[in-house]
Computed example of a mutant assay.
Amino acid sequence: MNNLHDVWRIRFIHYINELQKYMKYVFTGHLAIVFVFVLGAGGYQYSEWLKSAPTDFPATWLVSIVIGLLLAYSPPTTLIREPDQVYLLPLESKLMSYMKKALAWSFWSQIYLVLLPLVVAIPLLTQVGQVKPMTIGMVLITIVLLKFWNGQIEFAFQWANSGKRIWGDRSIRALISISTIIATFTLVPFYLVLLIFPIGFYSLWIKQVKGQPFPYEHFVKMEQNRMLRFYRFANYFTDVPHVRGSIHRRPWMDVMYRLIPFQEGNAQNYLVFRTFVRTDDTFYLWLRLTALSAIGAAFIGIPVVVMIFVGALAFASAIQIKQALSSSSEFRMDMLYPLVESARKKAVLKLVRVVQVLQAIIVLIAVLLIGVEQGILYTLPLIVVVVSEITLRMSK
């Protein structure tokens, strides 16, 4: 490789290929169906709410706070690796040519996170906040500039302090971002004066970086944690060899084990239930999907949409828990005992049925708490149970 530009290019290509390798398993199947119905139902509910929204609703403040908080979280994507602590040391004086590429990618890969909320909020701003299109255009430009500023400051702060007290820095930048966006919305006279704070803050941390060695260990750890979060997310949809599920005892659930009678025939029932409770990936997967089902049942007001939404999540829960508990190829102590081979399969099916009934009960509680008027929504628990049972019977 002739220079650091080639290093970035090769790593960037490998990084994109790694993302594509796993993302094709994420945005397919049931998740795509769920996204379609969630976006459709959410858009319908949003438009209906706008028709009756109060005129004194603080639209500009809400948008400014949400986007300001999102702007403050701007971690850089550097693609730095552990061997760089040795091999890039001779090139440290030229490291900024590599980092400029990294910061450019960080900006463009994160800009949608702050522009999307603004796009979604445009009907709210125009109908409720009475904001003019020209003002929204100025806010858009301000947000783009603030995103660039936040990314540069966070990188400099991470370099100067090796990540220590980063949330304090983010809090200050969030306040500056929120104030600047609010000033843009209101077009106050001291709008230009507010620009002094971002410029001064930027100059302060750029001076702090000069003369300091690059903290390779900190940025390597940041990259490893960032990729690990992605692999853990992708592991919910396909097998990722980089990830091994973490285990936690959860002593507050020990009392639940007593529900399984102490008998020889219940050995696999006990082991499967204990595996489900202690395995983070499986347990939190069911917890998240159940929470989404309850929220959807409570707040999606379109019966057909909420029925499909809850049914899709019931299918996702049943199929993924069954596969997670059945496909384990690792050695287990129960393999040493003379248990019937089909005992574990039956235990897995029994557990899935139990947790899906529990999911149905939670959905019913959500419907009862909200007190929905459509009587057909009280059939949602039945849909959860029926879809789960069909999934278990038809899947391998």
Results as ranks from 00 to 15, higher is better:
M1P: 05
N3F: 02
H5M: 08
V7M: 06
H14L: 08
L19M: 12
F35C: 12
V36F: 11
K51P: 03
D56V: 02
A59Y: 05
W61H: 02
L62R: 03
S64C: 07
S64A: 15
I65P: 00
V66P: 00
L71T: 08
P76M: 01
P76K: 04
T77H: 07
E82W: 02
D84H: 14
V86I: 14
Y87G: 00
E92A: 06
M96Q: 13
K100Y: 10
F107T: 04
Y112K: 13
L115N: 05
L116C: 06
V119Y: 07
T126L: 13
V128W: 03
V128F: 05
V128A: 08
Q130T: 08
I136Q: 06
V139P: 02
L140E: 01
L146K: 11
L146P: 07
W149H: 13
G151M: 08
E154R: 10
A156Y: 04
Q158I: 00
A160P: 01
G163Q: 07
G163D: 06
K164F: 08
K164Q: 15
G168A: 01
R170L: 05
R170T: 08
I172L: 15
A174M: 15
I176E: 02
S177M: 02
T180D: 01
P189R: 11
F190C: 09
F190E: 13
F190S: 13
Y191A: 09
I196Y: 00
F197W: 11
F197S: 12
F201L: 15
Y202F: 15
Q208F: 02
P215M: 04
Y216F: 15
E217L: 00
K221R: 09
R226C: 03
R226S: 05
L228M: 11
R229S: 14
Y231E: 05
N235Q: 08
T238N: 01
T238W: 01
D239E: 11
V240A: 07
M253P: 01
V255P: 02
V255N: 14
M256A: 10
I260E: 11
Q263G: 01
G265L: 04
N266S: 11
Q268P: 01
N269Q: 13
Y270M: 14
R274L: 09
R274W: 05
F276P: 07
V277D: 03
V277E: 02
Y284I: 12
L287R: 10
R288H: 04
R288V: 15
I300C: 04
V306G: 07
V306A: 08
I308C: 06
F309W: 09
I321K: 02
S326W: 05
S326F: 08
S329T: 12
E330G: 03
R332H: 14
D334E: 15
E341R: 15
K346R: 14
A347S: 14
L351Q: 06
V352Y: 10
V354Y: 12
A360P: 01
V367F: 01
L368R: 06
T379C: 10
P381T: 09
L382S: 12
L382I: 15
I383A: 10
E389L: 05
